[in-house]
Design a protein around this nucleic acid. Structure first.
Lengths: 360, 360
DNA sequence: CTGAAAGCGCTTACAG
DNA sequence: CTGAAAGCGCTTACAG
């Protein structure tokens, strides 16, 4: 922190080496501060010799504009906020990293907050972002995002909603087609002979979860087969093992488990092993979200692969468009995800098939 | 962005709903702006009824101080910058997440930048942080951090250096004992019978790499055995496969490979499989940095487990101490890491042992 | 083109 | 205790 040096007079040498300000530059160059600003921002053309003097002074002092003052005065800031539920999920980590890179390349900065899918935390974190008057916000909305979205709408800040749609709000959106992805995945499991499916989710209320459930039901309906599709909600990560153990030892246990993210995938693999079940012989496993380790585990993990980098890039473009101003039309981009089947998905065990046959 | 409404007169109703300022609150409460500030900050005690009026106005308008203005005026900001090389490495991701949480709990915010271990990028990213006049900086220094460190030292910003020591600078530091960890790991490999070790690093120049190499050499020396310990530098992640393939098919191929982070661990496992070698039968594998999937892969991955959360908490404490001011003594904290052997490490293959015996 | 001045939204001595 | 005013470091109309 700078020492409290009150009443320093013009021309007086600096006792403490402080960060130079535009005033220091102006004094050294012998021009008005406005002129320095004009040179640096190119707002108004500035003549040859004066211009040189300013640039020399800037170089000599190592002057860099104070972004706080600049943003305050300009009423806009080159910082964008990005809000994701957590980064322990591979997909969100990748999204944040992609953003950080794209933003930096464009001369922007990222303030990064975690919402933990908790409505109150989310609202608080976004409120903080707004207090910094960030130039824009990228939001992966949580389970009950209405207060957050209302606040953003009122603030007039450019926003792009990512990953989970926020119907009823006028924000630009970049999502991927969860319903189609889940439908596709379910169809393929049914085609392999699976008739008892279990979908493990962190929060049932999430829009994406709803969409996935819809996709699953659609696939079941279309198949014409008698398929049971259960949902298991498990908000606390620590409980996953117990909950899954119960489900997998029940009489009519599922032959295929679909989990909503890579952390759950890791948990499910552990649980299956702990129960001395074999994957995929006893139970197939498929996860949304492709982690770095999907192909390293055995059996290799089947996944729904999200187009992370495309999502980040698209969201950035939309945000920039808004930040540049103009009351342009709302854009909703929906990308496609890809189902990648690996060793963790196979035909269901014989006895399950036989049981069903006998029953039929 | 706020509409350009110039020359609004006092008392005039607002045409556009803007973010309320302290002036709006003061007007509504019928007090001076300084009084509002005093109520909110508790700088000066403010009487009963006036105080109520101010709080009511704040609530009614939903007023929240503009942090840009506040930080500019106070000459300090509740934002801390955190610089790590990347987040694709589990250890750094965990570090950042831990920080974000601790900071938020303390009412602070985090600006997060990625340096990619590139000196020029690092300098630029930290320069940006400084232009925002962040209250403090947490830095995981890259390969040649001198320019960055000089800049930080000049800026007078509180700094804590994490993970990699910055000798010769007066910053507080939180590191863990890489040398001891590597010595321990190497000793255990040698005890198992390994005589040809390969250490794969991203950058040889990194201080931590140097320390690890020292630890390895110490262990070799102490063992008294004839052990070859090679270093393989692989800056580009994409090249890892090829480089490892060469090393692992050489006549005197290593029987144990140690890699410097979890991304390399994943790459090494892939490479070993691609070569149709078996781990640990043909080659043992041990990694610095414990990823989420360490126990999921087969063989389960042996690791050096860093005390991530302790590091984050400790660094935060040191940073807060500096930010609160006071010219306190420099602190250098060194934590211990733990070697966790799992299935990926075993005795070397028989022929390697025999070859050595014959030779002896 | 240039300088002096107002103002962004706050905090903080300084008189009363 | 309270209000009026100066000032943080910038940008931006506004006269000359």
């Amino acid at each position: 922190m700078v020492g409290r040096e009150k009443g320093r007079r013009a021309g007086e040498p600096l006792a403490v080496r402080r960060t130079p300000t535009i005033t220091d530059v102006a004094r050294l160059a012998g021009v008005a501060v406005g002129t320095v600003s004009n040179v640096l921002n190119g707002t108004v053309p500035v003549g040859g010799e004066r211009r040189e003097r300013v640039l020399a002074a800037v170089a000599q002092l190592g002057y860099r504009p104070n972004m706080l003052a600049q943003s305050l005065r300009r009423r806009r800031s080159p910082v964008v906020g990005i809000c994701v539920p957590r980064t322990s999920v591979a997909y969100f980590a990748a999204l944040v990293e992609a953003f950080e890179e794209i933003a930096s390349d464009g001369g922007y900065h990222v303030m990064h907050v975690l919402t933990h899918d908790a409505p109150e935390l989310e609202r608080q974190r976004v409120a903080s972002l707004l207090r910094y008057h960030v130039g824009g916000v990228v939001l992966v909305p949580g389970a009950e995002p209405a207060p957050t979205l209302d606040m953003l709408a009122q603030s007039d800040t450019p926003v792009v909603v990512v990953d989970r749609t926020a119907r009823g709000y006028g924000f630009d959106e970049v999502t991927f087609d969860n319903r189609a992805a889940m439908r596709d995945a379910t169809e393929r499991l049914i085609a392999l002979g699976h008739r008892r499916l279990l979908f493990v989710v962190r929060r049932r209320k999430l829009v994406v979860t709803q969409q996935r459930i819809q996709g699953m039901r659609e696939a079941v309906r279309r198949s014409g087969a008698e398929v049971s599709a259960e949902i298991l909600e498990c908000a606390a990560e620590g409980e996953l093992g117990t909950r899954l153990a119960l489900a997998l030892t029940a009489a009519a246990r599922p032959t295929a488990v679909i989990v909503s993210n890579s952390t759950f995938a890791a948990g499910a693999m552990r649980a299956i092993r702990a129960l001395r079940l074999r994957c995929p012989d006893d139970v197939s496993l498929l996860a949304f979200d492709e982690p770095q380790w999907a192909e390293l585990v055995s059996p290799s993990l089947s996944v729904v692969r999200q187009p992370t980098h495309d999502i980040a890039r698209m969201a950035w473009e939309l945000l920039m468009r808004r930040m540049r101003g103009g009351a342009e039309e709302r854009q909703q981009v929906e990308l496609k995800a890809q189902v990648v089947l690996r060793d963790s998905v196979a035909r269901p065990p014989l006895q399950a098939r036989n049981a069903r046959r006998r029953k039929a």
